[in-house]
Design a protein around this nucleic acid. Structure first.
Lengths: 244, 244
DNA sequence: AAATCTGGAACTTTCGAAAATATTCCCGAG
DNA sequence: CTCGGGAATATTTTCGAAAGTTCCAGATTT
């Protein structure tokens, strides 16, 4: 079954690349608790890579703020907290909305195609999940996340700005960290909410209709609403709520 | 002579840290031509670090878009071009202006102090440079750049957003790459233009006067004008103008 | 002459161990 | 009992060499 994401797919990846991909995914999925140390020996045992590629991966993740390092004391998963989450969300609104605006203004047929195409793939997946009525398997959730990411990528893919794309991706990664732990719960799984899919359909419709302000406003609202859902769930937990 | 920047200064840096700092600085100063390969042996000879710390540094720089890597073919300095420059400038305007706005709205006495203090240090340096009337030494230019960076950092230092700060720094680095090569030329050295200092003084004045819109507008205008100066100089050169 | 092999040099990437640095734990002094 | 001191242990960081790729030039074939 062919993969969904737009990976570069060249068969010649270095081990460092692979290690980077796998560790990043595991952090995004919360396999390592935020704030916990990433010991090299443990990573070696887990993935089978040796020190060099692991170090390579960790250094890159450090620049992307998924990992922090302390001189001679190794690496840790970056902590999470509601203030950190809101910072990521509000900054993403700043970036994505501007990139979205530009795309709506200058996007051509190809862009519209990407938007509607990725929306369709998201919908298919989404409805399968809705029909299930409960938390899906890990693999299904992964696919849903991938397609959700692809859809948001498509929306801003005609911005013409490389930097906005890079930053958007980085912030998407951050927010995914907050979403993922709740995909197993009823109330927290946004992919189980009918309204969430409807909202995305409407954003796409407004986009191709070139109704810029409405589209952008709806996107921003969606980001904030997701934040509120997560926040209410986070407040129910001890460990994270008082994130130092 | 104590350093100007707000480095963490702890005496215990790893070699990887050091290598990262030095290579980054050399890229920003154009010591390596954009697009040129960064061979490990050459870097080892130049800095005296061995492969591991060098690799560490290069991987981090890759995440910050200062170098690109090709699997099993090593690292290169990322290319420059006018379109890349304008993307960095416009994205920086988006980020910095929002962060500036927030700082003006919520900044306290400490923030005002940082703004006026860093402005003063910049002015002193600037005027010494102006008095010289010609291109300064490398060391003087470095100090000027450091203080210029510190001033812009101070302006947005009360934004409350970690992400905006991170992105702003990254974009500042990019734009510095374009400025630096022209510090040795009469027409291109912005630090030799009286108006450039006056503008910065005015931005600071408007900021502490909480005249938000005017301050932000002037900042954006300044960024764009610098871009135009660089662009006109770049067009005079072959190699860079047709950046693929 | 154009295109395709092939061998070796130049580099990059990876490994495993040595060196350097932090952390833990135990013990004795106050 | 509490508080350092200091060896023993755990971990990170760095090194140099081995393994694996790419690149290039020259020979060989179409």
């Amino acid at each position: 079954m062919p993969s969904d994401n737009t990976a570069e797919s060249s068969s010649d990846q270095t081990l460092g690349q692979l290690a980077y991909d796998r560790i990043r995914l595991d952090i995004l999925k919360g396999q390592f608790r935020p704030g916990s140390p990433l010991r090299l020996q443990a990573l070696k045992d887990r993935y089978g890579f040796s020190f060099s590629p692991l170090r390579e991966a960790l250094n890159r993740l450090q620049s992307e703020q998924l990992v922090v390092s302390y001189a001679a004391r190794g690496f840790r998963v970056t902590k999470i907290s509601t203030t950190e989450m809101w910072d990521a969300i509000e900054t993403r609104i700043l970036i994505d909305c501007e990139a979205f605006r530009r795309s709506i203004r200058t996007g051509d047929d190809d862009w519209e195609g990407r938007v509607m195409g990725s929306l369709h793939k998201l919908s298919v997946c989404f409805e399968r999940n809705l029909k299930l009525g409960h938390a899906a398997t890990e693999e299904q959730t992964t696919q849903l996340e991938d397609r959700h990411r692809a859809f948001h990528g498509a929306l801003i893919s005609a911005s013409g700005s490389n930097w906005m794309t890079v930053f958007s991706t980085q912030l998407y990664n951050q927010t995914q960290r907050y979403r993922w732990p709740y995909f197993t719960t009823e109330g927290g799984n946004i992919f189980l909410k009918q309204s969430y899919l409807a909202e995305h359909k409407q954003i796409a419709a407004l986009a191709v209709a070139r109704r810029e302000d409405e589209a952008v406003a709806m996107m921003a609202k969606g980001f904030r609403r997701t934040g509120e859902i997560i926040e209410s769930l986070l407040n129910g937990e001890d460990e994270v709520a008082r994130g130092t």
